[in-house]
């Protein structure tokens, strides 16, 4: 089925267009809106977005692949993004990442077979003072250690 914004998001999309003097300027927020609705951004959706904004699908593709937060493939219900940059690394984020890999039996960029979790390492989350940190979907979890992480995993259904 061809991608389509639902009624609510269609309204949001039209509102977005009013923010800019050109259509293409709404590209990033439009892709966000697609991801909010679908969980990821499929090629079909990219073509639809290209059409909506009067740009080539290839342009949309190049933009979507330039950023790390747009998911071109589905991610887990809980997308674990562990910060790996210096301040978090100094506070042990490498161990955390290993812990997740062992516990969930997946590598970075993979999804658990039940689709509950996906794992990736990300760059500095601006949470260095509360390192190590991670994001689960859009929520920050800070001052982590193995016990805390296990607790978090347990609570995530």
């Amino acid at each position: 089925m061809l991608f389509q914004f639902n009624a609510q998001n269609q309204k949001k999309f039209e509102e977005l267009l009013s923010h800019y003097p050109t259509k293409v300027a709404a590209l990033l927020p439009t892709l966000w809106l697609v991801q909010e609705q679908e969980g990821n951004i499929s090629f079909e959706a990219m073509e639809v977005v290209a059409n909506l904004l009067d740009v080539s699908p290839a342009h949309v593709y190049s933009v979507a692949t330039f950023y790390t937060m747009y998911h071109l493939k589905p991610v887990g219900k809980h997308h674990l993004q562990v910060c790996r940059t210096l301040s978090c690394a100094l506070m042990g984020s490498e161990n955390l990442l290993e812990h997740f890999k062992n516990k969930l039996k997946i590598n970075e960029g993979e999804v658990t077979p039940d689709g509950r979790f996906s794992l990736c390492a990300v760059e500095c989350l601006a949470s260095c003072g509360t390192a190590p940190a991670m994001m689960v979907n859009e929520t920050y979890h800070e001052n982590l250690n193995v016990q805390k992480v296990d607790q978090i995993l347990k609570e995530l259904k």
């Binding site: 966000w32 342009h59 949309v60 937060m69």
Partner: peptide, 22 residues
């Protein structure tokens, strides 16, 4: 205008491009 995960967009002209062209 929300970024989408790219450090370089903090550089001021990259920021402008990110808004203007994506």
């Amino acid at each position: 205008h929300r970024g989408a995960g790219a450090y370089i967009c903090g550089e001021e002209t990259a920021l402008l491009e990110s808004i203007e062209e994506g």
